[in-house]
Write a protein that binds this DNA or RNA. Structure first.
Lengths: 149, 149
DNA sequence: TATTGTTATACTCTATAACTATA
DNA sequence: TATAGTTATAGAGTATAACAATA
Protein backbone atom coordinates (compact mmCIF):
# COMPACT_ATOMS: atom_id res chain seq x y z
CA UNK A 1 0.00 0.00 0.00
CA UNK A 2 1.38 3.39 -0.96
CA UNK A 3 0.65 7.01 -0.07
CA UNK A 4 -2.01 9.02 -1.83
CA UNK A 5 0.39 11.56 -3.27
CA UNK A 6 2.24 8.67 -4.84
CA UNK A 7 -0.87 7.56 -6.67
CA UNK A 8 -1.38 11.03 -8.05
CA UNK A 9 2.17 11.07 -9.27
CA UNK A 10 1.68 7.68 -10.85
CA UNK A 11 -1.38 8.98 -12.67
CA UNK A 12 0.75 11.78 -14.11
CA UNK A 13 3.46 9.35 -15.10
CA UNK A 14 0.99 7.14 -16.89
CA UNK A 15 -0.49 10.04 -18.78
CA UNK A 16 2.96 10.84 -20.14
CA UNK A 17 3.22 7.40 -21.72
CA UNK A 18 0.96 8.72 -24.46
CA UNK A 19 3.82 10.64 -26.02
CA UNK A 20 5.92 7.49 -26.20
CA UNK A 21 3.13 5.49 -27.77
CA UNK A 22 2.55 8.19 -30.35
CA UNK A 23 6.24 8.17 -31.10
CA UNK A 24 6.09 4.47 -31.85
CA UNK A 25 2.91 4.81 -33.89
CA UNK A 26 4.65 7.41 -36.01
CA UNK A 27 7.25 4.98 -37.30
CA UNK A 28 4.66 2.40 -38.42
CA UNK A 29 3.71 2.03 -42.10
CA UNK A 30 0.74 4.07 -43.25
CA UNK A 31 -1.82 1.32 -43.61
CA UNK A 32 -0.89 -0.36 -40.35
CA UNK A 33 -2.05 1.80 -37.45
CA UNK A 34 -1.32 0.91 -33.85
CA UNK A 35 -4.47 -1.13 -33.39
CA UNK A 36 -3.55 -3.43 -36.25
CA UNK A 37 -0.01 -3.84 -34.97
CA UNK A 38 -1.33 -4.88 -31.55
CA UNK A 39 -3.54 -7.53 -33.14
CA UNK A 40 -0.65 -9.00 -35.10
CA UNK A 41 1.65 -9.00 -32.08
CA UNK A 42 -0.82 -10.88 -29.89
CA UNK A 43 -1.66 -13.46 -32.54
CA UNK A 44 2.03 -14.08 -32.98
CA UNK A 45 2.72 -14.35 -29.29
CA UNK A 46 -0.25 -16.47 -28.21
CA UNK A 47 -1.11 -18.26 -31.45
CA UNK A 48 -4.52 -18.62 -33.07
CA UNK A 49 -7.53 -17.65 -31.00
CA UNK A 50 -11.15 -16.49 -31.11
CA UNK A 51 -12.09 -12.83 -31.45
CA UNK A 52 -13.40 -12.68 -27.90
CA UNK A 53 -10.11 -13.85 -26.45
CA UNK A 54 -8.22 -11.35 -28.57
CA UNK A 55 -10.45 -8.60 -27.21
CA UNK A 56 -9.64 -9.73 -23.71
CA UNK A 57 -5.90 -9.67 -24.39
CA UNK A 58 -6.15 -6.27 -26.04
CA UNK A 59 -8.11 -4.94 -23.08
CA UNK A 60 -10.74 -3.36 -25.32
CA UNK A 61 -14.34 -4.05 -26.25
CA UNK A 62 -15.05 -6.79 -28.76
CA UNK A 63 -16.79 -4.34 -31.09
CA UNK A 64 -13.53 -2.45 -31.45
CA UNK A 65 -11.57 -5.65 -31.78
CA UNK A 66 -13.87 -6.75 -34.58
CA UNK A 67 -13.01 -3.65 -36.56
CA UNK A 68 -9.28 -4.00 -36.02
CA UNK A 69 -9.52 -7.60 -37.15
CA UNK A 70 -11.48 -6.65 -40.25
CA UNK A 71 -8.71 -4.23 -41.14
CA UNK A 72 -5.91 -6.77 -40.93
CA UNK A 73 -7.98 -9.49 -42.65
CA UNK A 74 -8.68 -7.19 -45.60
CA UNK A 75 -4.94 -6.76 -46.04
CA UNK A 76 -4.18 -10.45 -45.85
CA UNK A 77 -2.23 -10.29 -42.62
CA UNK A 78 -4.69 -12.42 -40.68
CA UNK A 79 -6.85 -15.37 -41.70
CA UNK A 80 -10.36 -15.68 -40.22
CA UNK A 81 -11.87 -19.16 -40.39
CA UNK A 82 -15.04 -20.60 -38.84
CA UNK A 83 -14.62 -22.40 -35.52
CA UNK A 84 -15.51 -26.07 -36.06
CA UNK A 85 -16.57 -26.36 -32.41
CA UNK A 86 -18.81 -23.29 -32.27
CA UNK A 87 -20.63 -21.86 -35.26
CA UNK A 88 -20.76 -18.43 -33.66
CA UNK A 89 -17.02 -18.12 -33.28
CA UNK A 90 -14.25 -17.46 -35.73
CA UNK A 91 -10.64 -18.46 -35.37
CA UNK A 92 -7.98 -15.87 -36.11
CA UNK A 93 -4.55 -16.84 -37.33
CA UNK A 94 -1.53 -14.83 -38.46
CA UNK A 95 -0.63 -15.41 -42.13
CA UNK A 96 2.94 -15.56 -43.44
CA UNK A 97 2.45 -12.06 -44.86
CA UNK A 98 1.29 -10.92 -41.45
CA UNK A 99 4.32 -12.46 -39.83
CA UNK A 100 6.60 -10.69 -42.30
CA UNK A 101 4.95 -7.39 -41.60
CA UNK A 102 5.12 -7.95 -37.88
CA UNK A 103 8.84 -8.61 -38.07
CA UNK A 104 9.23 -5.31 -39.85
CA UNK A 105 7.12 -3.51 -37.25
CA UNK A 106 9.16 -5.04 -34.45
CA UNK A 107 12.33 -3.83 -36.11
CA UNK A 108 10.99 -0.31 -36.45
CA UNK A 109 9.78 -0.10 -32.86
CA UNK A 110 12.98 -1.62 -31.52
CA UNK A 111 15.11 0.76 -33.57
CA UNK A 112 13.24 3.73 -32.20
CA UNK A 113 13.44 2.53 -28.62
CA UNK A 114 17.10 1.60 -28.98
CA UNK A 115 17.75 5.16 -30.11
CA UNK A 116 15.73 6.91 -27.42
CA UNK A 117 16.67 4.56 -24.60
CA UNK A 118 20.31 4.28 -25.55
CA UNK A 119 21.41 5.19 -22.06
CA UNK A 120 19.19 2.72 -20.28
CA UNK A 121 20.78 -0.48 -19.07
CA UNK A 122 19.40 -3.85 -19.97
CA UNK A 123 18.34 -4.27 -16.38
CA UNK A 124 16.45 -1.00 -16.20
CA UNK A 125 14.46 -1.80 -19.32
CA UNK A 126 13.70 -5.22 -17.88
CA UNK A 127 12.53 -3.67 -14.64
CA UNK A 128 10.12 -1.38 -16.47
CA UNK A 129 8.76 -4.29 -18.50
CA UNK A 130 8.11 -6.33 -15.36
CA UNK A 131 6.34 -3.47 -13.67
CA UNK A 132 4.19 -2.73 -16.72
CA UNK A 133 3.16 -6.37 -17.03
CA UNK A 134 2.30 -6.41 -13.38
CA UNK A 135 0.36 -3.17 -13.74
CA UNK A 136 -1.71 -4.68 -16.49
CA UNK A 137 -2.34 -7.76 -14.37
CA UNK A 138 -3.41 -5.68 -11.37
CA UNK A 139 -5.79 -3.65 -13.45
CA UNK A 140 -6.77 -6.70 -15.37
CA UNK A 141 -10.49 -6.85 -15.91
CA UNK A 142 -11.36 -3.32 -14.97
CA UNK A 143 -13.51 -3.38 -18.07
CA UNK A 144 -15.52 -6.39 -16.97
CA UNK A 145 -15.93 -5.16 -13.42
CA UNK A 146 -19.25 -3.52 -14.23
CA UNK A 147 -20.72 -6.96 -14.52
CA UNK A 148 -21.22 -7.65 -10.85
CA UNK A 149 -24.88 -7.61 -9.92
CA UNK B 1 21.67 -0.77 -24.16
CA UNK B 2 19.21 -3.66 -24.18
CA UNK B 3 18.36 -6.51 -26.55
CA UNK B 4 15.96 -6.13 -29.42
CA UNK B 5 13.44 -8.62 -28.09
CA UNK B 6 13.30 -6.57 -24.93
CA UNK B 7 12.30 -3.49 -26.85
CA UNK B 8 9.50 -5.38 -28.53
CA UNK B 9 8.29 -6.55 -25.16
CA UNK B 10 8.48 -3.02 -23.86
CA UNK B 11 6.34 -1.85 -26.76
CA UNK B 12 3.72 -4.42 -25.81
CA UNK B 13 3.86 -3.36 -22.19
CA UNK B 14 3.37 0.26 -23.09
CA UNK B 15 0.41 -0.52 -25.27
CA UNK B 16 -1.27 -2.18 -22.28
CA UNK B 17 -1.09 1.05 -20.31
CA UNK B 18 -4.06 2.22 -22.35
CA UNK B 19 -6.42 0.07 -20.31
CA UNK B 20 -5.17 1.64 -17.10
CA UNK B 21 -5.57 5.15 -18.46
CA UNK B 22 -9.09 4.39 -19.61
CA UNK B 23 -9.86 3.05 -16.17
CA UNK B 24 -8.77 6.32 -14.62
CA UNK B 25 -10.65 8.38 -17.20
CA UNK B 26 -13.79 6.44 -16.35
CA UNK B 27 -13.88 7.68 -12.78
CA UNK B 28 -13.58 11.36 -13.77
CA UNK B 29 -16.65 13.64 -13.76
CA UNK B 30 -18.54 13.86 -17.04
CA UNK B 31 -17.53 17.36 -18.12
CA UNK B 32 -13.89 16.88 -17.19
CA UNK B 33 -12.26 14.47 -19.66
CA UNK B 34 -8.68 13.34 -19.31
CA UNK B 35 -7.26 16.17 -21.37
CA UNK B 36 -8.76 18.76 -19.04
CA UNK B 37 -7.53 16.93 -15.98
CA UNK B 38 -3.99 16.91 -17.35
CA UNK B 39 -4.12 20.67 -17.94
CA UNK B 40 -5.25 21.32 -14.38
CA UNK B 41 -2.63 19.01 -12.91
CA UNK B 42 0.23 20.69 -14.76
CA UNK B 43 -0.90 24.21 -13.92
CA UNK B 44 -1.10 23.19 -10.29
CA UNK B 45 2.29 21.55 -10.29
CA UNK B 46 4.29 24.10 -12.25
CA UNK B 47 2.25 27.26 -11.67
CA UNK B 48 1.06 29.78 -14.25
CA UNK B 49 2.52 29.53 -17.71
CA UNK B 50 1.98 30.31 -21.39
CA UNK B 51 0.03 28.01 -23.69
CA UNK B 52 3.14 27.00 -25.59
CA UNK B 53 4.88 25.82 -22.44
CA UNK B 54 1.82 23.88 -21.40
CA UNK B 55 1.79 22.14 -24.78
CA UNK B 56 5.42 21.21 -24.25
CA UNK B 57 4.70 19.74 -20.82
CA UNK B 58 1.66 17.86 -22.13
CA UNK B 59 3.74 16.49 -24.98
CA UNK B 60 1.07 17.36 -27.55
CA UNK B 61 0.65 19.92 -30.31
CA UNK B 62 -0.28 23.45 -29.33
CA UNK B 63 -3.41 23.31 -31.45
CA UNK B 64 -4.72 20.50 -29.28
CA UNK B 65 -3.59 22.25 -26.15
CA UNK B 66 -5.50 25.33 -27.22
CA UNK B 67 -8.72 23.32 -27.37
CA UNK B 68 -8.16 21.69 -24.00
CA UNK B 69 -7.49 25.09 -22.50
CA UNK B 70 -10.64 26.55 -24.05
CA UNK B 71 -12.62 23.77 -22.41
CA UNK B 72 -11.32 24.40 -18.90
CA UNK B 73 -11.53 28.19 -19.29
CA UNK B 74 -15.20 27.94 -20.31
CA UNK B 75 -15.88 26.11 -17.08
CA UNK B 76 -14.04 28.59 -14.90
CA UNK B 77 -11.29 26.21 -13.85
CA UNK B 78 -8.52 28.19 -15.53
CA UNK B 79 -8.01 31.90 -16.04
CA UNK B 80 -6.50 33.12 -19.31
CA UNK B 81 -5.02 36.61 -19.19
CA UNK B 82 -2.89 38.53 -21.71
CA UNK B 83 0.85 38.35 -21.21
CA UNK B 84 2.09 41.90 -20.38
CA UNK B 85 5.49 41.08 -21.88
CA UNK B 86 4.25 39.60 -25.17
CA UNK B 87 0.99 40.56 -26.83
CA UNK B 88 0.82 37.24 -28.67
CA UNK B 89 0.96 35.15 -25.53
CA UNK B 90 -1.62 34.42 -22.88
CA UNK B 91 -0.90 33.42 -19.32
CA UNK B 92 -2.83 30.46 -17.90
CA UNK B 93 -3.54 30.18 -14.19
CA UNK B 94 -5.53 27.71 -12.12
CA UNK B 95 -8.55 29.31 -10.41
CA UNK B 96 -9.73 28.35 -6.91
CA UNK B 97 -12.59 26.42 -8.51
CA UNK B 98 -10.07 24.61 -10.68
CA UNK B 99 -7.98 23.78 -7.65
CA UNK B 100 -11.03 22.39 -5.86
CA UNK B 101 -11.90 20.24 -8.85
CA UNK B 102 -8.34 19.04 -9.17
CA UNK B 103 -8.30 17.95 -5.53
CA UNK B 104 -11.41 15.92 -6.22
CA UNK B 105 -9.88 14.38 -9.34
CA UNK B 106 -6.76 13.46 -7.42
CA UNK B 107 -8.87 11.76 -4.79
CA UNK B 108 -10.77 9.77 -7.38
CA UNK B 109 -7.66 8.63 -9.23
CA UNK B 110 -5.87 7.80 -6.00
CA UNK B 111 -8.85 5.82 -4.71
CA UNK B 112 -8.97 3.78 -7.86
CA UNK B 113 -5.24 3.09 -7.88
CA UNK B 114 -5.23 2.29 -4.17
CA UNK B 115 -7.91 -0.30 -4.85
CA UNK B 116 -6.28 -1.87 -7.90
CA UNK B 117 -2.72 -1.68 -6.63
CA UNK B 118 -3.56 -2.74 -3.08
CA UNK B 119 -0.92 -5.45 -3.15
CA UNK B 120 1.86 -3.26 -4.43
CA UNK B 121 4.38 -2.02 -1.90
CA UNK B 122 5.19 1.62 -1.53
CA UNK B 123 8.58 0.91 -2.98
CA UNK B 124 7.27 -0.84 -6.08
CA UNK B 125 4.94 2.02 -6.91
CA UNK B 126 7.83 4.41 -6.40
CA UNK B 127 10.00 2.38 -8.73
CA UNK B 128 7.40 2.49 -11.47
CA UNK B 129 7.00 6.25 -11.06
CA UNK B 130 10.74 6.81 -11.35
CA UNK B 131 10.97 4.68 -14.48
CA UNK B 132 7.98 6.39 -16.11
CA UNK B 133 9.42 9.82 -15.41
CA UNK B 134 12.70 8.73 -16.87
CA UNK B 135 10.95 7.25 -19.88
CA UNK B 136 9.27 10.55 -20.54
CA UNK B 137 12.58 12.35 -20.19
CA UNK B 138 14.32 9.96 -22.58
CA UNK B 139 11.60 10.35 -25.17
CA UNK B 140 11.32 13.98 -24.30
CA UNK B 141 11.18 16.10 -27.38
CA UNK B 142 10.42 13.44 -29.93
CA UNK B 143 7.77 15.84 -31.17
CA UNK B 144 10.12 18.78 -31.48
CA UNK B 145 12.87 16.70 -33.00
CA UNK B 146 11.62 17.44 -36.51
CA UNK B 147 12.88 20.97 -36.07
CA UNK B 148 16.56 20.41 -36.68
CA UNK B 149 17.70 21.72 -40.03
C1' DT C 1 10.06 37.21 -41.26
C1' DA C 2 9.25 34.47 -37.32
C1' DT C 3 6.37 33.23 -33.47
C1' DT C 4 1.96 32.65 -30.51
C1' DG C 5 -2.22 31.13 -30.50
C1' DT C 6 -6.75 29.76 -32.79
C1' DT C 7 -9.69 27.27 -35.89
C1' DA C 8 -10.96 23.80 -39.59
C1' DT C 9 -10.43 19.32 -41.13
C1' DA C 10 -9.35 14.58 -40.84
C1' DC C 11 -7.80 10.31 -38.65
C1' DT C 12 -7.30 6.79 -34.79
C1' DC C 13 -9.10 4.67 -30.97
C1' DT C 14 -12.74 3.66 -27.95
C1' DA C 15 -17.59 2.51 -25.89
C1' DT C 16 -22.65 1.71 -26.13
C1' DA C 17 -26.50 -0.08 -28.30
C1' DA C 18 -28.97 -2.60 -31.76
C1' DC C 19 -28.74 -6.54 -34.54
C1' DT C 20 -27.83 -11.47 -36.58
C1' DA C 21 -26.71 -16.08 -36.00
C1' DT C 22 -25.76 -19.88 -33.20
C1' DA C 23 -25.69 -22.50 -28.56
C1' DT D 1 -32.18 -17.29 -23.05
C1' DA D 2 -27.47 -16.46 -23.46
C1' DT D 3 -23.33 -15.83 -26.16
C1' DA D 4 -20.08 -14.55 -30.40
C1' DG D 5 -19.52 -11.41 -33.52
C1' DT D 6 -20.80 -7.30 -36.53
C1' DT D 7 -22.21 -2.66 -37.52
C1' DA D 8 -23.86 2.17 -36.59
C1' DT D 9 -23.27 6.02 -33.95
C1' DA D 10 -21.00 9.09 -30.87
C1' DG D 11 -17.17 11.00 -28.18
C1' DA D 12 -12.27 11.81 -26.80
C1' DG D 13 -7.70 12.66 -28.42
C1' DT D 14 -4.46 13.83 -31.76
C1' DA D 15 -1.95 16.08 -35.99
C1' DT D 16 -1.58 19.13 -40.09
C1' DA D 17 -2.50 23.19 -42.36
C1' DA D 18 -4.28 27.76 -42.87
C1' DC D 19 -4.97 31.87 -40.51
C1' DA D 20 -4.71 36.33 -37.44
C1' DA D 21 -2.13 39.14 -34.47
C1' DT D 22 2.14 40.48 -32.62
C1' DA D 23 7.39 40.54 -32.27
Amino acid sequence: MAARSQYEELARGLSAVGAVKRGIARVLPGDCPGGSAAVLALLDRYGEMRTSRLAELLGIDMSVTSRHVAHVVERGWVERTPDPHDGRSRILRLTPAGKDLLDDLGRRAADLLADRLAEWTDEEVGQLIVLLIRLRASFGDCRVTHTYT
